[in-house]
Amino acid sequence: MSRLIVRRLLVSLAVLWLVTLLVFVATLLLPGDPARAILGQQATPERIAALRAQLDIDAPVWERYLNWLGGVVTGDLGTSTATQGPVNDLLGDRIGASLVLLVAAAVLSTLVGLALGTWTAMRRGRAADHTVSGISLVIAALPEFVIGVALIVLLSTTVFPLLPSVTLAPPGEPVWSQPSQLVLPVLTLTLVVTPYITRMMRATMSEVLDSGYVEMARLKGIPEKTVLLRHALPHAIGPVAQVIALQLAWLAGGVVVVEFLFRYPGVGQALIDAVNSRDVEVVQAITLLIAAVYIVVNLLADIVGILTSPKLRAEVTR
């Protein structure tokens, strides 16, 4: 089994490497002179020359790639063309702020999703099941910003003006110093992914509850609670872990829109700013960062899958 995990780890590393290649190759798409493309037509020749030097444009492509990759590996993400400062400084606090959003939404949606999914799977075909299914179907259809705007209308401006609709904390102060400003962003992200986790959990649980071994456990006279905890749940965890991972990765994308909507000082907001100002190295750094988060989350889900698979576990005990 440990060999399987090591293999999976190597695959992740290979994918991560290909991702760096892709992110780098994307910069080659910049039309014409990259420096001019970034700085625009009004840029002075001096600034263009400086940027060309900074981007190492005259060096061969592979050398530029290796330099950049070397920087990334040693934790130096480059220099922002917009601020002229290191990308690391720019992202430092923002990573923490975004992680707060992500982790809060992930924990909340996983807990709610698993509970609701299990609960409805046990009440298949009844009114509670139909209601939850219907609501999650509707919410699942909505893009992040639609949910966000709806929440702002409902809880922040027109109907019940209870919560701030934008982040108020001054720069430099941690976002969690005013917890009320976290509520709407976290709630939006939670609403975005909970329906998926609920539906998947319901489907997986339904399948497991219909399985031969669960029927057999009931025919053996095992109490229902034991049937659920011992015979059903362990088999649902593996497949659901994959879906949760997928949804968390989705959060990493959704966070961009939500941060923009709530003017939240996180990585997503920085990405939008960087795209607008064509701040290439910042865009590279952030897309790479998000892809890395995604790869790690998926890796963890697969390891959970490997650990919960009885066939693989048995190999260890043998």
Binding site: V15, T287, Y294
Partner: peptide, 23 residues
């Protein structure tokens, strides 16, 4: 499928932003 995995490592919106940043 490995090629897929690489593309799948980006949330769709982030990948779109990467392309828009360049072009």
């Amino acid at each position: 499928m490995r090629g897929n995995d690489v593309l799948l490592s980006f949330p769709q919106l982030v990948f779109a932003l990467l392309a828009i940043a360049m072009l």
